[in-house]
């Protein structure tokens, strides 16, 4: 949805026939086609080894396989990497990988400074990004001394400070306690950017994504509206996915939530 509430059809992510083999010969992606519009929230699910994370690493050119990847029409090639990495904010699964600087400030300022912002501008972006994730005033802290939930949010702040148009998250809800997980879901729901979320946490996907893409064996096995994909038990089972015990998605939940979101806006 655009800011005016109408559906736009500007392509945010276009992936065509993407194939990738790791140096040891393992084929991780096997002809992936994926089209994501601006403003969409897409859950990328599938069994371990399906190629989800590998696909994510192609969105900003960390990995480059055969086939075509375009971000807002821009092909992912060497000349465009700087612009593409600004537009695609990739958040890694382990905050200890994402947060490598001695202080939170240095980590959140890393992206903006690489983009060529002045120290004063970068500082402003850091303040803004930390406020967005609810961690104002944490600049001087070391990532090592934050709780895991806080680390995850700082990791998101490190890309928000680059004002990305696409947020690509790898397992954002893993290892979080229930409250931190809910807070993260609410935080992500409130961010007005295109989102791609790789996860095994199907209820989490159901909460924040309108659309679900099932990846299996390096190719797209299913692609559709979240409720219809997640309530198709046969489909889930064929691709090694299961809803957790006691969780039954209901179509109304979705509409109720849309209603609530509309009220907020």
């Amino acid at each position: 949805m655009g800011k005016d509430g109408k559906v736009h059809h500007r392509p945010a992510i276009e992936v065509k026939g993407l194939t990738y083999e790791y140096p040891d010969g393992t084929r991780a992606l096997n002809g992936v086609d994926l089209f994501i519009e601006e403003g969409e929230s897409v859950g990328l699910v599938g069994p371990n080894g399906a190629g989800k994370s590998t696909l994510l690493l192609h969105l900003n050119g960390i990995l480059r396989g055969r086939g075509e990847v375009r971000i807002f029409g821009l092909p992912v090639v060497r000349e465009n990497l700087k612009e593409i990495r600004r537009r695609v904010g990739l958040v890694f699964q382990d905050p200890d990988d994402q947060l490598f600087s001695p202080t939170v400030f240095d980590d959140v300022a890393f992206g903006p400074l690489n983009m060529g912002l002045s120290p004063a501008e970068a500082e402003e972006e850091v303040r803004r990004a930390l406020a967005m994730v609810g961690l104002k005033g944490m600049e001087r802290r070391s990532a090592h001394h934050l709780s895991f939930g806080q680390q995850k949010r700082v990791a998101i702040a490190t890309v928000l400070s680059m004002r990305p148009d696409i947020l690509a998250l790898d397992e954002p809800s893993s290892n979080l306690d229930p409250r931190a997980r809910r807070e993260l879901a609410e935080l992500l729901q409130g961010l007005p950017v295109t989102k791609v979320v790789v996860t095994h946490d199907l209820p989490f996907v159901f909460q924040i994504c309108e659309r679900v893409v099932v990846l299996d064996g390096g190719r797209v096995a299913a692609d559709g509206e979240a409720f219809s994909v997640l309530s198709d038990e046969g489909l889930l089972e064929r691709h090694g996915l299961e809803l957790p015990y006691g969780f039954y998605p209901r179509g109304e939940d979705r509409r109720e939530r849309e209603g609530r979101r509309a009220d907020r806006e």
């Binding site: 690493l57 900003n60 960390i62 700087k82 990495r85 600004r86 695609v88 990739l90 890694f92 382990d94 990988d97 994402q98 490598f100 890393f110 992206g111 690489n114 983009m115 490190t158 890309v159 680059m162």
Partner: peptide, 11 residues
């Protein structure tokens, strides 16, 4: 992985 995370933010 850290290096990939650095590249992802324009290192």
């Amino acid at each position: 992985r850290v290096y990939a995370a650095m590249l992802a933010r324009g290192y």
